[in-house]
């Protein structure tokens, strides 16, 4: 059975994929799905409980919660994915260099990874936002930087394993350059665990980014972002719990979907890999 067949028959992974497809469609077609505006304040209709017109109620500024969640899909998924791209973009080259060249370079990069690992992701992201300030780009950078060490470690381990393989020696023997060996052989043989880790990491970055938003240190209002919505809803938790219940559910489902996909990809791409890392 090939990977794709294994993935297709992996029921949890298919559930995750289905949730993500649904999210993507809703994000793209949000303007056609809902008649309301995600940003425009309508104070006369503020803090309404769920009804036929406002399925999930309205917030303190009279905006439809469902509409904001739908538009928020664009923001929150984008931040999550973009942050992983940032983390991979920096972490993979560092991991490759660290594993391939070894010695002093490796030592330095490993100490850097150690240092970054001494902070939980949320703390690192928080410290960076404290310095950089809030805003979409800064949140992406802060969260992305926080997951760099995960990719350094992963890729370094892969490189160390692949480096010993005979075909790398063979490539070197026929005069291939380091870069060529790295790209053609080392990375080409490491993509499976990288994809698995990337998928799971999107779950992490969504959680961390929404956490920043929840604290009021994410994307500033009135941008509809799930974490920020949850943070605003927190102030109305006694009287209007719908304001925080549904954005939280949106985050939760997205994270579950990426985790399900990650598990499925792991089983499909490399059955030997196990859910050992967190």
């Amino acid at each position: 059975m090939d990977s794709w067949a294994r993935f297709r028959t992996h029921k949890p992974a298919m559930l995750g994929a289905a949730i993500l497809v649904l999210y993507t469609l809703l994000a793209i077609f949000a303007p056609w799905v809902t008649p309301h505006d995600p940003v425009q304040q309508q104070l006369v209709q503020s803090l309404q409980t769920p009804s036929a017109e406002f399925w999930l109620g309205t917030d303190h500024l009279g905006r439809d919660v469902l509409t904001r969640i739908l538009y928020g899909t664009r923001i929150s998924l984008f931040i999550g994915i973009a942050a992983v791209v940032v983390g991979m973009g920096i972490g993979i080259p560092l991991g490759v260099v660290s594993g391939f060249y070894g010695r002093a370079t490796d030592m330095v990069i490993q100490r850097i990874a150690d240092i970054m690992f001494s902070f939980p992701s949320i703390l690192l992201a928080l410290a960076l936002v404290a310095v950089l300030g809030v805003g979409l780009n800064n949140v992406i950078i802060a969260v992305g930087v926080a997951i760099i060490p995960i990719f350094i470690r992963l890729v370094r381990g892969q490189v160390l394993a692949v480096r010993e393989e005979a075909y790398v020696d063979a490539a070197r023997a026929i005069g291939a350059s380091d870069l060529r060996i790295l790209v053609r052989h080392v990375l080409a043989n490491s993509w499976a665990p990288i994809i698995v880790q990337a998928t799971i990491s999107i779950g992490i970055t969504i959680l961390v980014a929404a956490g920043l938003g929840f604290l009021g240190l994410g994307v500033p209002s009135p941008t509809p972002e799930w974490g920020a919505m949850l943070g605003e809803g927190r102030n109305y938790i006694y009287s209007h719990p719908h304001m925080s219940t549904f954005p939280g559910l949106a985050i939760f489902l997205a994270v579950i979907a990426f985790n399900l996909m990650g598990d499925g990809l792991r089983d499909a791409l490399d059955p030997r890999l196990r859910a050992l890392e967190a």
Binding site: G211, L230, S244, F252
Partner: peptide, 9 residues
Amino acid sequence: SMPVYWLGL
């Protein structure tokens, strides 16, 4: 997968 802040709320 549970956001701790949501679970807390």
